[in-house]
Design a protein around this nucleic acid. Structure first.
Length: 134
DNA sequence: GCCAACGTTGGC
DNA sequence: GCCAACGTTGGC
């Protein structure tokens, strides 16, 4: 199983929107690196759900429910989307600040490639954040 | 609102 | 193929 972190601006699409809908199509990604990440996602992979700009914290855990297929919001064949559903909220959201101050998370993709909206995390990083958020 | 980081575009 | 200009993201 692989682990990911996906970003959303909560004033556009928040964790509570996600929970209310029971899942969503993760479309609109127009960055090659993020696209490549979407392509290698497998059903059952888990993803940390991060609120960018507002909140700047990881608020929950999502699961990939459908693997990459052509993004219906794009005319081009090159872009893909996946489908995800909410798995569980983090009882205590893990803030960017607390991630930065945790030495074991110093190499997390969120910090290393801060502009990438779909980024891989290691199992250790995933477990660490889940623990910090419990 | 500003700006750093970084990706993309287009002229040469 | 290089690089300057420009656009976007996201933290502050």
């Amino acid at each position: 199983m692989k682990y990911w972190l996906i970003k959303s601006e909560p004033d556009v699409y928040s964790w509570s929107d996600f929970v209310n809908e029971g899942g969503t199509v993760w479309s609109g990604v127009r960055n090659y690196q993020a696209r490549n990440n979407l392509r290698v996602m497998a059903k059952g992979d888990k993803a940390l759900f991060y609120h960018s700009n507002i909140g700047k914290e990881i608020v929950g855990i999502a699961e990939i429910t459908r693997e990459a297929y052509p993004d219906p919001t794009s005319d081009s064949e090159q872009w893909v989307c996946v489908e995800v559903k909410p798995l569980a909220p983090l009882p205590t959201p893990v803030t960017l600040e607390s991630i930065k101050s945790e030495p074991r998370l110093a190499n997390i993709g969120l910090l290393k490639q801060s502009r990438l909206s779909v980024v891989a995390v290691t199992k250790a990083e995933f477990d660490r954040i889940q623990k910090m958020g419990s």
